[in-house]
Computed example of a mutant assay.
Amino acid sequence: MAVTRSRYRSASSAGTLVAFLLVLIFGSPWYVDWVNSGNRGLFLETLAWPQWNIDSDQSVRELLAADLKAILLILFTAVFISLLVGAQLSSARGTISAILTGWAAFIFAAALAALLTAFLLANTSFGTAVVNAAGGAGYGLIVGWIVGIASMAGRRT
């Protein structure tokens, strides 16, 4: 039983590490500026969604919301992968199941992070928060397969 538990812990740590790297690299101000400077395509533009910022030209509220969204995405990814990988103790423990587990966890994490941080912005309604959550879910759908593959690889170690 201890071996199984450690393998599932490594799945969540591998997925969380990849989520952290995605946010750190592709959410950086330098990458976001590069993407915004031209038409880079859907995938490269979507990678820049959970952007964190250190720019002092924005309001404190906007900076806090953007940075908190990036942090919550990583934390919620760890929580959801841990919860969903535990469900793999059932009969569905294959490679496809592991990829879909990490992918789904990332979709849920991005949507929830966007939903919660939307309320930090000025003049936010519940409808605006739901639209932000849909944008986060879209990000998770397009990028989440990377986290899914990482959590599958972590599960095997």
Rank of each mutant, 00 (worst) to 15 (best):
L47I: 07
L100E: 07
A87T: 04
W52V: 10
R93S: 09
L68K: 05
S91V: 02
F80W: 14
D55A: 15
N53D: 06
L63G: 14
L64K: 04
F80K: 09
D67W: 13
A98V: 02
Q88R: 15
L72A: 02
N53T: 15
V85C: 00
Q88S: 07
S91K: 15
L84W: 11
G86M: 07
S82R: 07
I96K: 06
T101L: 09
G94Y: 10
D55M: 08
K69D: 00
I99V: 15
L83R: 13
L73P: 02
D67H: 08
V60G: 10
L83E: 01
A65Y: 02
V79T: 07
T101M: 12
R61Y: 02
Q88E: 03
P50D: 03
L89I: 02
L89H: 12
V79P: 00
E62Y: 10
A78Y: 10
E62H: 10
L100K: 05
T101P: 02
L68D: 03
A70K: 12
L68N: 03
S97A: 14
L47G: 05
G94R: 07
A70I: 03
A87I: 00
Q51M: 11
S82I: 11
K69S: 10
V85S: 06
S59Q: 04
W49A: 10
I96P: 01
A87S: 09
A66Y: 14
G102S: 03
D55W: 03
V79C: 01
W49V: 13
S56D: 01
I96V: 15
L68P: 02
A92F: 13
L73Q: 14
T101I: 03
L75A: 12
K69M: 04
D67L: 02
G94N: 09
I74T: 13
F80S: 04
L68C: 03
R93W: 05
A48I: 00
L63I: 06
L89F: 13
A92Q: 13
I81L: 09
T77G: 09
R93Q: 07
D55Q: 08
T95A: 11
D67P: 07
R61N: 06
P50Q: 09
Q58K: 09
D55I: 06
S56I: 11
L68G: 03
S91C: 00
A87N: 02
S59W: 06
I96F: 11
S97D: 07
L100G: 14
T95S: 01
S97M: 03
A66F: 05
L83H: 05
G86I: 00
S97L: 06
F76T: 11
L47T: 13
G86S: 13
I81E: 11
I71A: 15
F80M: 08
